[in-house]
Design a protein around this nucleic acid. Structure first.
Length: 627
DNA sequence: CTAGGGTTAG
């Protein structure tokens, strides 16, 4: 980099008269683009060049386009058009500009550029034609794209790759495969396009088959496959493939790889791997761009390390709505509602427009601490001051907020007045309230509605059965469970993860498959005995009772989080924090038990629910038992 | 010129 400054200083102070300044600028901009410092290139362009020629314009546009800075590409292009002294655009100009339009999915802008292409006679250039086809596919004008493709007299691999990409994009993976099969010459891009095409429709088997079959792979092929897993909730597969990627010599993960893997870490709660990636980024000097910064901050937030998340956020030199939303949601999940509100105010001060997801964060913050009025105010504000129409998710959140606070009438009224059809989740939020406040009539009504929508909704059977049980109506509870079993409804199995020495271990309820099961169950017995001494009595009213007779075995009815915690206790050093991720909500009994365990063993235990964090320490939980 | 990336109720 210092070298660059020296060159620049030299050309600015003692220009070599025989050399064209444009030529020097083009070279410098090219170097800047490849070193990921486009900002420096712009400085050269604007301050050093008095009259940039077409080469200089194309160099700067290409630099922007390469770094996905499409807004700048269009800005410079439009400036070029209105400036009388600026050179006319040529085919190189158009390829960059069309790429920008495609990236921004701006149909109108794209059509305007298309007209200019014709006007300046660049229509027959194959680069431009390929870019046009790509653009029309990406803005959803499939017919125009196909027509342009059919009109082409000469087609190269890129043209065919663009076509299969377009077919995948319009959901016709089969047709894309047919074209792919018929291609005489396939490139790496053809294979990668098909892989991500299959991944996008969730066909990971086919994607993986192509991945294993392809003759050679580059970073993008690996990224496509890893991202495919991460986006289809196959987080462990994503991590596993990343590990395999690291074994490949001469192949280094890049920022795109890390974004996908960090997202997987966030979902798995794999803090160790996440931290490793953080160090990797620093060691390699990888720039913390928007995507990577956001992914890293979200990983920390979702692993319960909100301070680290804020640290990443502060370090980023560019932040967008997503960055702010990640922090707000992270604060909300970790129970720091007030900080979430403050963060929102700061965001508005910084002139960043909140979006629907930002409001989800704010509403969950309110839900997790029971701030009903505040939540209703935000719900009102989002439409009235920010023009964001509440989606079903927001209604679900507010119903949850009201229900937890016992305002069941209002919650039910809200559901009935919703402009969108309520779904199982919205009704489920109300059912949760019915369960807490033991409103059996309303609960039965709600369960009927839920089963109309989804006849095998296991949660509602379980909730209803528990409600009967807690009211002492054991016969009804038994009938409900029987009905559930007769209808072949299966409960979603509770599952917990814990990461020890970079390996994620998975536990199901009553799981005996772990090689250290004996030790784990011994630890559980020991804990039970100590808890009894500490005066702990198991609460049973909200606990799911055994549905099958066979499950009577004591050891088998242990919830997965207890198994994971016991395993954590025997396999990590004393005094260290134990972190668990669970796919369902922690039940009341486990919540109480973990509080006591944290006190008995003198350890902090962090449990990530499906919706929030519980930081257990010294017999207390950060959620203050409101969850 | 073509392929790969981040936030979202229970």
């Amino acid at each position: 980099m210092r070298h660059l400054y020296q060159i620049q200083a030299q050309v600015t102070t003692n220009p070599i008269p025989s050399m064209d300044p444009n030529l020097i600028a083009v070279k410098l901009i090219g170097v800047c683009a490849s070193r990921a410092s486009v900002r420096h290139g712009t400085l050269i362009f604007t301050h050093y060049l008095s009259s940039p020629n077409i080469f200089a314009y194309n160099a700067i546009l290409k630099a922007f386009a390469q770094h996905n800075d499409w807004l700048s590409t269009l800005r410079y292009f439009n400036a070029q058009l209105v400036l009388p002294s600026a050179p006319d655009p040529d085919e190189y100009t158009f390829t960059s500009v069309l790429k920008a339009c495609a990236g921004l999915a701006q149909e109108d802008e794209g059509r305007k550029v298309h007209c200019l292409v014709t006007k300046y006679g660049c229509h027959s250039n194959i680069f431009v034609r390929n870019s046009l086809v790509d653009l029309y596919f990406k803005v959803g004008c499939f017919e125009i794209a196909h027509n342009l493709f059919d009109e082409m007299t000469v087609r190269d691999v890129v043209s065919w790759n663009t076509l299969i990409f377009g077919l995948c994009l319009s959901g016709q993976v089969d047709k894309a495969q047919a074209v792919f099969d018929g291609m005489v010459e396939r490139s790496l891009v053809s294979w990668s396009t098909m892989i991500s095409g299959y991944a996008k429709v969730g066909d990971l088997k086919e994607a993986r088959r192509l991945f294993e079959e392809m003759p050679e792979r580059n970073v993008v092929s690996w990224n496509a496959m890893i991202a495919g897993y991460a986006q289809n909730e196959k987080y462990s597969d994503a991590v596993e493939l990343f590990r395999r990627m690291q074994q490949v010599k001469g192949l280094a993960p890049n920022d795109v790889t890390l974004v996908s893997v960090l997202s997987a870490c966030a979902h798995l709660g794999a803090l160790d791997l996440g931290k490793w990636i953080d160090r990797f980024i620093r060691r390699r000097g990888i720039e913390l761009g928007l995507f990577l910064g956001n992914a890293l901050a979200d990983m920390y937030a979702k692993c319960g390390c909100i301070e680290e998340a804020k640290g990443v956020f502060d370090k980023m030199h560019e932040r967008d709505v997503i960055s702010w939303s990640i922090i707000i949601t992270g604060l909300a999940m970790n129970g720091h509602a007030n900080e979430a509100f403050e963060c929102f105010d700061k965001m508005v001060e910084h002139g960043v427009r909140p979006n629907d997801i930002t409001f989800m964060g704010l509403l969950t913050a309110c839900t997790h601490v029971g701030l009903v009025e505040k939540g209703l105010k935000y719900f009102d504000t989002m439409d009235h001051t920010y023009g964001i129409i509440p989606k079903i998710e927001h209604y679900g959140c507010v119903v949850d907020l009201l229900s937890r606070a016992g305002r069941l009438d209002e919650a039910e009224k809200l559901i009935n007045s919703m402009p969108v059809e309520p779904n199982v989740i919205v009704w489920g939020a109300l059912l949760g309230g019915c369960r807490i406040y033991k409103d059996i009539e309303r609960g039965e009504r709600v369960v009927r509605r839920i089963l109309e929508l989804e006849s095998d909704h296991s949660g509602s059977y379980v909730y209803l059965a528990n409600m009967y049980a807690s009211l002492g109506r054991l016969d009804d509870a038994a009938k409900c469970r029987l009905r559930m079993r007769n209808n072949g409804v299966m409960k979603m199995p509770g599952c917990s993860w814990i990461e020890v020495d970079n390996v994620v271990y998975e536990f199901f309820m009553g799981d005996l498959s772990h090689p250290q099961s004996d030790k784990i169950f011994y630890m559980i017995r020991e804990l039970r005995w100590k808890m009894k001494l500490a005066g702990y009595k198991p609460k049973t009213d909200l606990v799911v009772h055994n549905i099958d007779e066979e499950e009577k075995e004591d050891a088998l009815s242990v919830h997965s989080e207890k198994l994971a915690i016991a395993f954590g206790l025997i396999s990590t050093p004393e005094g260290t924090t134990i972190r668990i991720v669970k796919n369902l909500r922690v039940c009341n009994d486990c919540h109480d038990a973990i509080k006591i365990i944290s006190k008995i063993v003198g350890r902090e235990i962090v449990v990530r629910d499906r919706s929030r964090f519980h930081h257990f320490r010294d017999g207390r939980c950060s959620c203050n038992d409101y969850w």
